[in-house]
Design a protein around this nucleic acid. Structure first.
Length: 448
DNA sequence: TCTGGGGTCCTAGGACCC
DNA sequence: TCTGGGGTCCTAGGACCC
């Protein structure tokens, strides 16, 4: 299963390259003092650890873990803020490194990619040799280590790189795929999370070998027919070898959204609406920056008891207008409150989280707004763009909807006035990258 | 173990139309 | 007028990934 096997057996070698503890590695790159100290990115009051270095992992700290629990496991843990702009820049550089080896690159996230190296073996050597060259280049140019998996299919390559971590390579030649997979726990399959793994174990299927040989009817009863078919494909290593020519610059994201968990749960409608306006502002600003618009507005709320509900509404036409997204989100919010028996009194009424998402995105050039009779020549759309320009020049903390001003409670604006997307200087401009009062978001995130 | 934020994809039911 | 089937859109929720 290791070493450079004879390449003749490879129909189409897929490499999966995955950075080791990406966010932590990048954030700690310039902090040699923290190299061998348990350290993590993120982990605020109600936040979670984004990524932990291996010294912290030795204490059991993992990405996705609450900061409270991480510090309980490792009291000396050092938490540092992350900077999304830096992560993106490194990600772009990584993609260029990969493209230097093959044009067939599918970025799976910021820090990992699948590479089809079929055409590169003649020039660069075996898949293993190529993987080692890529790892050396990443280390030399970006100062971070990565791991690689080499296999005939996407999901097997993914599993292989995970098992090669940290700083290693694992090659699974075609003739070894079935043995390699069948020795695994079902939970290790790519695409099998906690929910599916639990269902499988309840059906008596613990290993991939058992899953592979399970009667189809039994499997369908456990997970449904669609998932049953997909699982057996994975269990025999017969998933795809073709890479998706992933979204190019011209193909937009399918949705954009933003959500916020509050430092304390909110009960006041005015406060909730202010949060919704902040989220709508943030999301539509990103829509406009990406030159896309969307037709469906979705609102997510999470109550104190963790009950999470989503409601969505599809508009007649795609929009990137802050006011329209805000209005739709408020309507969804109010419908939700009205629909709840007793108006959701009691503990459930307190909100822990609110999220706004715009779905069904299309390029803005494809949106032809039909001017409604009597619509003003220069409407909300122009106001949004004026705000965007000001934010671009002076920083996003400088301008925003008037209602996002922090005013003394006695002078708080009415609902009607607070919805106006007027560009107004904030009373106390927030510095870039600071976390606003009451926010939980990762340090380095901008509020708007 | 008291549980973030950003996404994608799939399923399933109901409405509506042909 | 009743019935059936198929296709598409919308909505809600779940699962998964990083």
């Amino acid at each position: 299963m290791s070493g450079g096997r004879v390449d003749r057996s490879w129909d189409c070698p897929i490499l999966h390259v995955d950075m080791d503890a990406f966010f932590a590695s990048v954030a700690l790159r310039d902090r040699p003092d923290l190299q061998h100290v348990p350290a993590a990115v993120g982990g605020g009051h109600r936040g979670v650890v984004l990524s932990a270095n291996y010294a912290a992992r030795a204490h059991g700290v993992r990405g996705g873990m609450s900061g409270v629990r991480a510090r309980r496991l490792c009291p000396q843990l050092v938490c540092v803020p992350g900077d999304h702009a830096t992560f993106s820049a490194v990600s772009t550089a990584l993609r260029e490194i990969f493209r230097g080896f093959t044009p067939q690159v599918e970025m799976a996230s910021l820090d990992e990619a699948f590479l089809d190296v079929r055409g590169a073996t003649r020039l660069l050597g075996s898949p293993l040799a190529i993987a080692e060259q890529i790892r050396a280049t990443v280390l030399a140019e970006q100062g971070i280590t990565c791991s690689a998996g080499v296999a005939p299919t996407v999901s097997v390559a993914k599993i292989a790189s995970r098992r090669a971590k940290p700083d290693g390579v694992l090659v699974v030649p075609p003739e070894d795929v079935v043995d390699f997979l069948h020795a695994l726990d079902v939970g290790e399959l790519y695409g099998v999370g906690d929910a599916t793994a639990t269902k499988l174990r309840r059906a008596g299927l613990r290993t991939v070998r058992q899953l592979a040989h399970a009667p189809v009817g039994e499997l369908r009863a456990a997970v449904g027919s669609g998932a049953a078919h997909q699982l057996q494909v994975l269990a025999w290593g017969r998933d795809r070898s073709r890479l998706h020519e992933r979204r190019g610059p011209q193909e937009p994201d399918r949705s954009m959204g933003s959500q916020r968990t509050f430092a304390r749960d909110l009960t006041d409608r005015e406060e909730v609406l202010r949060e919704i306006l902040g989220l709508a502002t943030k999301v539509t600003r990103r829509l406009r920056a990406g030159s896309v618009a969307g037709r469906t507005v979705a609102l997510t709320v999470r109550y104190t008891d963790f009950t999470t509900l989503t409601r969505s509404q599809t508009l007649p036409e795609p929009t990137d207008v802050t006011q329209e997204v805000y209005a739709a989100a408020v309507a969804l919010h109010d419908a939700l409150v009205a629909a709840a028996p007793g108006g959701r009194r009691g503990r459930r009424a307190a909100l822990r989280l609110v999220g706004v998402r715009v779905e069904g995105l299309v390029p803005r050039t494809r949106v032809h707004r039909q001017r409604v009779l009597g619509e003003r020549e220069h409407g909300w759309s122009d106001a949004d763009r004026a705000v965007d320009r000001a934010a671009g020049r002076f920083g996003s903390g400088v301008v925003g909807p008037a209602s996002l001003l922090r005013l003394p409670p006695t002078t708080a604006p009415t609902t009607a006035s607070r919805t106006a997307p007027t560009a107004a200087p904030t009373a106390a401009p927030r510095g870039r990258g600071t976390t606003p009062e009451g926010a939980v978001g990762r340090a380095g995130d901008e509020f708007l």
